[in-house]
């Protein structure tokens, strides 16, 4: 399976529609296979992100806020969405692989100025 995470620096981007960078990781037998890819998008667009998730045959999207239309669209495309996540993308990926990541989860160690948006 593949997992797509919307990125802002090393954290999950607060909004799906304003995301310009994503991380895609391939999971094989509960482990990350190979180096996760980081993709820079030409600009923020929910539609483009949805297309990318479909094209990449992603099974799970981890993001911050997402509009209902796109949430429903991805679900309809059989892509699970875990939204309203706050915190480190790496940590979220680990929790998702362990199947313990829940919508609205805050995975956060108090940030310093350099990691804030």
């Amino acid at each position: 399976m593949k997992i797509l995470i919307t990125l802002h620096n090393n954290d999950i981007a607060p909004r799906f529609d304003l995301t310009t960078e994503v991380l895609i990781a391939r999971i094989v037998r509960g482990k990350i296979s190979g180096e996760p890819r980081t993709i820079l998008l030409p600009g923020p667009s929910s539609d483009e992100l949805c297309s990318l998730a479909i094209k990449e045959e992603v099974s799970l999207v981890i993001c911050g806020g997402i509009e209902d239309a796109h949430f429903q669209y991805l679900n309809w495309k059989k892509i699970e969405v875990i939204d309203r996540i706050i915190g480190s993308a790496k940590e979220a990926l680990t929790l998702a692989i362990a199947k313990t990541l829940q919508p609205g989860a805050i995975i956060w160690t108090r940030p310093d100025r350099s990691t804030t948006p």
Binding site: D11, P14, G64, P111, T116, P117
Partner: peptide
């Protein structure tokens, strides 16, 4: 302790 924009999810992020 969390930066406001992660919580508010505003468009001026």
């Amino acid at each position: 302790g969390i930066h406001y924009d992660y919580v508010l999810r505003s468009n001026f992020w």
